[in-house]
Amino acid sequence: MKVRLTVNGRPLEGEADAETRLLDFLREDLQLTGTKEGCGEGECGACTVLIDGQPVNSCLVLALQADGSDVLTIEGIADGDTLHPIQQAFVETGGVQCGFCTPGFIMAAYALLKATPNPTDEEIRSALEGNLCRCTGYERIVDAIRLAAGRMQGDA
């Protein structure tokens, strides 16, 4: 069946069947492999993307269910070769170790800072409740988001 999506600002059309998850469509059909598959059942958040601005597990959404919507992935947030402030902050604070969970965390953080530009630490931790990291112990991820929030406010 046909599926029409806007992905990272670009309208596009593809084919998907009832088994194709949005995750598969992004990775296999569009070659957007920044979005990772961790658990495949909504527990880990590695596959987090935004649909119409809301973070979702792309392993739990069929591509056909997302028909007509606006999808933002990790590939869509940098400005050319300039990293998004959240990405840059993850690099600087050491919020990335193995890196597998990172795209999901950054997309969850992106949604948080859109809605809440100046979050408390508690709000940051709540916004990351659906994302698991087995390397960092989370502290540096929270540091990164706090740093990014400060810089993005400075820009505004």
């Binding site: 909504g42 987090t48 597990n57």
Partner: peptide
């Protein structure tokens, strides 16, 4: 319930 990602769907 679940997580933000779950509650959004």
């Amino acid at each position: 319930l679940g997580s933000i990602q779950i509650r959004n769907r």
